[in-house]
Amino acid sequence: MAAAIETRKLTKTYKSRLHGLINVVQDLDLTVEEGEIFGFLGPNGAGKTTTIKMLLGIIYPTGGEGFVLGKEIGDMDVHRIISYLPERPYYYEHMTGLEILRFYGALFGIKDEALFNQLLERVNLAADKSKTISQFSKGMQQRIGLAQSLLNDPKLLFLDEPTGGLDPIAHIEIRDLILNFRDEGRTVFISSHELSEVERICDRVAIINKGIIVRQGKLDDLLSGGRIEIIADDVSKEIADQVKGTTDATVSFHDGRLIVDMSDEQDPNSVVDSIRSTKGRIISLTPRRKRLEDLFIETVRDDDASKKKPAAVAAEVGGAQ
């Protein structure tokens, strides 16, 4: 299967009067396979949006190269078969949902009213098609955004923080829509920092921090290597401290309850033994897959610790976008 997106050493450098040259994105090597949902993760200001804009040809890379659906980035032909939903987009407020679709349709030369209505139905806005955007809720705006991004039946969708700022129900709606996209054979490139969402839907992820990819791979591989969670009551303070001291695990202790989160590579028996030796009561012992959140925090923290870049960079990068 050919790669939907491929970048080699893609770099974007800004000049800042205050900090000199700033690498917002540096030597980015990214491969997104066709038909997968790809999560592009990173903290605010890590370079996610900059990367997407480069891939879309809205801004120009200062180094490296990139290909989208086999064509060099910036190629106008590619724009016919991709689409983009920016983070918290605004649409012309005086227009109705249908008018928005007509407008964006016209940009492709599409005048298919049946398609417009079908898309409105698909994003559950058919009943509100005479409302203007100014009367839309955030979730509705995001849904009309998704509708417009489907106008050209895209092979590849770029979704920038698609669930940002939405309520839980809207989350679920959007998530379902995105999962549908994959079922339809589309490639979806999601940039997000809402990890639980990404974990639920993505096939593969890349984690970017301060412009550099720090992890990339299949979600299953990245999260493999399970963990064990031990919960016990009536544990004394001494025992808790002892467990903390002997295991390389996350330990929390409060009011006699001890929660230990440890790698399954370590032996849980010694912890259990310690607890039981002082009449502590084991409530549960659960083997668990690693959460994306953990992976993310772990990765970013390790990365930050190894680099110790100035904190101002993040703010600067955010401003530059």
Binding site: S83, P86, P89, Y90, Y104, L107, G145
Partner: peptide, 14 residues
């Protein structure tokens, strides 16, 4: 500012 330009320029619009 409203980012509408991104949605427009990501379409086949020069």
């Amino acid at each position: 500012e409203r980012r509408t330009i991104y949605t427009i320029l990501s379409k086949p619009v020069m």
